[in-house]
Amino acid sequence: MSIQHFRVALIPFFAAFCLPVFAHPETLVKVKDAEDQLGARVGYIELDLNSGKILESFRPEERFPMMSTFKVLLCGAVLSRVDAGQEQLGRRIHYSQNDLVEYSPVTEKHLTDGMTVRELCSAAITMSDNTAANLLLTTIGGPKELTAFLHNMGDHVTRLDRWEPELNEAIPNDERDTTMPAAMATTLRKLLTGELLTLASRQQLIDWMEADKVAGPLLRSALPAGWFIADKSGAGERGSRGIIAALGPDGKPSRIVVIYTTGSQATMDERNRQIAEIGASLIKHW
């Protein structure tokens, strides 16, 4: 067993022997301040990774656009098919120029040779490549099948209805392509620590998230040296922004954090800054 596999296998073990965790309302004060600064709703939840206990939450059962955070769930569904012998990570998928959609920095470079399922998941999570996500959605049967996968996990809230990039439209009061912070946090925890996926697939999923290259201005910008984070960000229309993450000190994750916002007129930089400040408060009061 590799060191990384050992780390993920012992996530519940280490967490069980940690000192009790206590909620700190100071972080919620910052979440509410972010709402004021952005002029928009902000949803927040913080779960203990081992027990699933909610440590703090704000608007945990209000719907927010998922945006690209759905790509972690998508690759979880792909990995479940791999575990069941219905898919192979090494299978190569070929596609054409007509398949390319807006923001496809990886797939646009491989029109000639195609990409493997493993490479597509890596591109979808680490670079948020939209064509990679659409190609992977095709392998599982489309958005409705991802929703069905989530329902089978016990998540009857999260739903995907459309493809990239239309799913980022974020129309107010439109339930399409949305989740709730509580539902997303619980589902992410199941994917990373539950028995739904094999140990190898859980490790692969967290490795992809740990290698995320496009979430630097968010929670990662607030992390002290030595902290662990595996995350996936999302951005959408109407001032929408979000991030889902597993993080913790001492090089291992111990909490799940989900943050979503929508309806702001603020710039992307300002949305990023507010999420980073929430992260800084979380870490300060850990």
Score class of each variant (00 low, 15 high):
H24Y: 10
E26T: 13
E26V: 03
L28M: 05
L28W: 13
V29P: 12
K30A: 15
K32S: 11
D33A: 07
E35S: 05
D36W: 03
D36R: 07
Q37L: 11
Q37K: 03
Q37T: 10
L38E: 01
A40H: 08
A40C: 01
R41H: 12
V42F: 12
V42S: 08
G43L: 08
G43C: 02
G43A: 11
Y44Q: 01
D48Y: 01
N50R: 10
N50D: 13
N50F: 08
S51D: 04
S51I: 04
S51H: 12
K53G: 05
K53N: 10
K53E: 09
E56F: 12
S57W: 14
S57M: 03
R59T: 04
E61K: 00
E62A: 12
R63P: 09
R63G: 08
R63H: 04
R63A: 06
F64M: 11
M66L: 10
M66E: 02
M67R: 07
S68G: 15
S68C: 09
S68W: 08
F70L: 08
K71M: 15
L74K: 01
G76K: 07
G76T: 04
G76S: 06
V78S: 03
V78P: 04
L79C: 01
S80W: 15
V82C: 01
D83F: 12
D83P: 01
G85W: 01
L89W: 02
G90H: 07
R91F: 13
R92Y: 12
I93Y: 01
I93W: 07
I93C: 00
I93N: 08
H94K: 11
H94Y: 07
Y95K: 06
Y95N: 15
S96E: 07
N98R: 08
V101K: 14
E102K: 00
Y103W: 00
Y103K: 10
S104A: 02
E108H: 08
K109P: 02
H110E: 01
G114V: 08
M115V: 02
M115K: 04
T116L: 02
V117R: 03
R118M: 06
L120A: 05
C121Q: 00
A123T: 04
A124C: 03
A124N: 07
T126P: 07
T126G: 12
M127C: 09
M127L: 11
T131Q: 11
A132Y: 09
A133K: 00
L135M: 06
L135G: 02
L137M: 03
I140H: 04
I140S: 03
G141A: 03
G141D: 01
G141N: 00
K144T: 04
E145F: 13
E145Q: 15
L146E: 07
T147H: 01
A148H: 07
A148L: 06
F149K: 08
L150W: 02
L150D: 02
M153A: 04
G154R: 06
G154M: 09
V157Q: 14
V157M: 14
T158G: 10
T158C: 14
R159Y: 14
R159V: 06
D161G: 00
R162V: 02
R162G: 00
W163S: 13
E166N: 07
N168P: 01
N168Y: 13
N168E: 15
E169A: 08
A170I: 04
A170E: 02
A170P: 00
A170S: 04
P172K: 02
D174W: 07
D174E: 00
R176C: 02
D177C: 04
D177T: 08
D177M: 00
T178K: 14
T178F: 14
M180H: 11
M180W: 06
M180N: 11
P181M: 01
P181S: 03
P181R: 02
A182M: 01
A183E: 09
A183T: 02
T187E: 08
T187V: 08
T187Q: 01
L188P: 14
R189W: 12
K190G: 13
L191H: 12
T193C: 07
T198I: 10
T198G: 06
Q203M: 13
Q204M: 12
L205I: 06
I206V: 12
D207L: 04
M209W: 13
A211V: 10
A215M: 09
G216F: 14
L218F: 14
L219R: 12
S221W: 15
A222C: 09
P224Q: 02
G226T: 11
G226S: 07
W227Y: 08
A230L: 12
A230H: 06
K232W: 10
S233L: 14
S233A: 15
A235E: 15
G239P: 10
S240G: 00
S240D: 00
R241E: 14
R241H: 15
G242Y: 06
G242P: 07
I243K: 07
I243F: 14
A245L: 13
A246E: 06
L247N: 06
G248E: 03
G248Q: 03
G248K: 05
D250N: 13
G251N: 13
K252C: 13
K252T: 10
K252I: 14
K252L: 06
P253A: 08
P253L: 09
S254D: 11
R255P: 11
R255Y: 12
V257R: 15
V258D: 02
V258S: 05
I259K: 14
Y260G: 10
T262I: 09
T262V: 11
T262R: 04
G263F: 04
Q265Y: 09
M268K: 15
M268V: 14
R271V: 14
R271L: 11
R273K: 10
Q274L: 10
Q274F: 09
I275P: 10
E277T: 05
E277C: 05
I278L: 11
L282G: 11
I283P: 11
H285F: 00
W286M: 12
W286T: 03
